[in-house]
Amino acid sequence: MDIAVLIKQVPDTDEVKMDPEKGTMIRDGVGSLINPLDMNALEAALTLARRGGTVTVLSMGPAQAERALREALALGADRALLLSDRAFAGADTWATAKVLATLLDKTGPFDVILAGEKATDGETGQVGPEVATFLSIPFATYVSRIEASDEGITVRRTVEEGYQHLRLPCPCLLTVLHDLNEPSMPTLAGKKRGRRAQVERFGLDDLALDRSDVGLSGSPTRVVRIAHPKISRRTAFFGGKDLDAGIEQVIGLLREKALLQGGCRS
């Protein structure tokens, strides 16, 4: 079974910054890591491949995304592909999915394509299903269990009502949740292999796509305004000898809002 894993290098959550003019994320000089849910997808791919098969990881991003791919190689992936070109910059989920699907079609075929349910820097959950749509293959989201057989892939989806069980033919695409597995840590031998292994690079000229199909030009959605939430609440702290006064103030506020009636019993 040949498996592809879509991984994304995302900024550390506490360091995310936005360009107010372009409406795009500022990634230069920001610490980064592999999107956590993509690590679950990679672990699932490595588990499936132990029955016989290969694992290919691919990512679209700036040159620094090579570090994420090398980490995946250190964990056991067989092949790493990097889509990096200034023409891809500013892509929304649609333009990103189109480029990823084009490379998957060029370097495949793959029996299963895996990805995290969503990325921490976007939270849309759109890229996986859009890739499947471009490739015209079935897909399942919110996957929390995977079983492979000669008939195809059986998955359990975690949905609001409980669990849903589906059987999909191969090829198919799955986006996974945290509770699918526990990602492994690389071994020393794996880290050495990850540093030495080749990362194959692809740009716009390697794909049968027009410049207007990719990046900001090929993105049907735009960020037109960025709003930062303002915290307007006023917090008061009481302790020590002021504690009783604080309790009385809280009781008074609760009564004022008709949330407390009568006296307060200790």
Rank of each mutant, 00 (worst) to 15 (best):
E256W: 02
L75A: 01
D12P: 04
G23F: 07
K17I: 04
R193G: 03
E66W: 02
S217Q: 15
L254T: 05
T187F: 05
E248H: 14
M25W: 04
P36K: 07
D121A: 05
E71H: 10
R233G: 12
G190M: 00
L188T: 00
G61V: 06
E147S: 14
A140K: 12
T56E: 10
I146H: 14
L209T: 06
L207V: 08
F202Q: 09
V10C: 02
L69D: 07
L180V: 07
T56F: 08
L81R: 01
V131G: 03
R27P: 04
I146P: 06
T133W: 08
G152M: 03
P169N: 13
D85E: 08
L174V: 07
T107G: 02
D92C: 10
A132M: 11
P129R: 14
A4G: 10
M25V: 13
D206H: 13
S184R: 15
D205I: 09
A87P: 07
R225M: 05
R234L: 04
L103A: 11
L135C: 11
L6V: 14
S232F: 04
L33M: 04
T56G: 09
G29P: 09
Q64V: 12
R233A: 15
G262Q: 07
V176L: 03
D206T: 02
E123P: 02
A65P: 05
V155T: 05
E66Y: 00
E71N: 02
V250F: 04
E160N: 08
S217I: 13
P20A: 02
E43C: 08
A41C: 08
L48E: 13
G53F: 08
T133K: 14
Q249D: 10
V199N: 02
Q261R: 14
L188A: 11
L37T: 01
S212H: 12
G31W: 01
L188F: 13
R157L: 00
K17D: 03
G52W: 12
R222D: 11
K241H: 11
M25L: 15
M39Q: 13
P186F: 01
L83H: 15
R51K: 15
R156E: 14
A80Y: 00
C264T: 15
R201H: 11
P138E: 07
R234A: 06
K22H: 06
L254K: 01
M1K: 09
V57Q: 03
L188E: 04
R79L: 01
L114Q: 13
A74M: 00
S84P: 03
I226N: 01
F139I: 00
K118V: 07
K22M: 09
R193M: 10
D206P: 03
D121C: 03
A77W: 07
S149D: 14
K17G: 05
S149L: 02
A148F: 04
E123N: 15
Q126L: 15
G218S: 07
V99T: 14
I137D: 05
R67G: 05
L209Q: 08
E147T: 15
G76I: 04
T47A: 15
F237R: 13
I137M: 08
V57P: 00
I137K: 12
G246F: 03
Y163S: 12
I3G: 06
S266W: 12
R167F: 05
L6Y: 06
D78N: 14
V250W: 06
